[in-house]
Amino acid sequence: MKNKAKINAVEKTAKSIFMICAVIAIFAVCSITIYMIAKGTPALKSVGVLKLLFGTSWAPTANEPAYGILYIILTSIVGTAASVLIGVPVGLLTAVFLTEISNKKLAAIVNPAIELLAGIPSVIYGLLGLMLLNPFMYKMEKMIFEDSDTHKFTGGSNLISAVIVLAIMILPTVVNVSASSLRAVSANLRAASYALGASKIQTVFKVTIPAAKSGIMTGVVLGIGRALGEAMAINMVAGGSVQIPLPFNSVRFLTTQLVSEMGYAEGVHRQVLFTVGLVLYIFIMVVNLVLQKLRKGANTDE
């Protein structure tokens, strides 16, 4: 009898410990959301929604300050989209190579290399971009804009550099998630395709990749999330001026905006930075919602 009571007590305690842990996680998400909304919305009122979100002039310390963050939002969208456009095809083809084409020996070299890529701190990517990419970009810039009067020279810190760095940074995510979903495609399906006289490449593109579609999409969305949220590396290579996101312009992302100005901002300026944070937060939430939808879809069909 006594023993049973003891077991009951242990059960109950364990249950409540698990419960508390779960509550902490939920509490963290809720409080962050509430905090971001509480801190991010006042600027919408004091500056005005249109002026803030669709303004193109950023001059927080001027005599007549302007707080337009449109170019910053656009830079994040364009930069992320471009890096995904480069990173996803490269990553997907790498995954196809690893799972379908390369022999085991080669895969044993390439696979860990890609895992390693995921483990490199982002500041190292920034450093490499700074030392290797930027000088090269500067040379191109000098060539392309030799006769231009309007172009502001950046020394090579520009949108393209940031996009390339981001594309490389999302590679491991895209490769790993895609590769595991390609591996999960039943050998039976491939055999059916070969038995109809399809070649290896036809089989990969018409059967294997479509069958692994939802897994690959998950990789893409995770990549988008990673690119959107990255700050350190692109802060080092993107230049940092608030400008329209053209390839050779020095630009500022939502993340780098916070990194570079949060340290000294005061008053409305500080409020606006929180709004920038809120916009980023909303983007990430949307990406995650899409991800959850995709995962649900992957579980129900196929």
Partner: peptide
Amino acid sequence: RKKVGMVFQQPNPFPMSIYDNIAYGPRI
């Protein structure tokens, strides 16, 4: 393999429409 077709132990239709399954071979 176009001349010598094969049907497997486990039914293994492709995860696509019935039409596309049948048309797969002729298309490739």
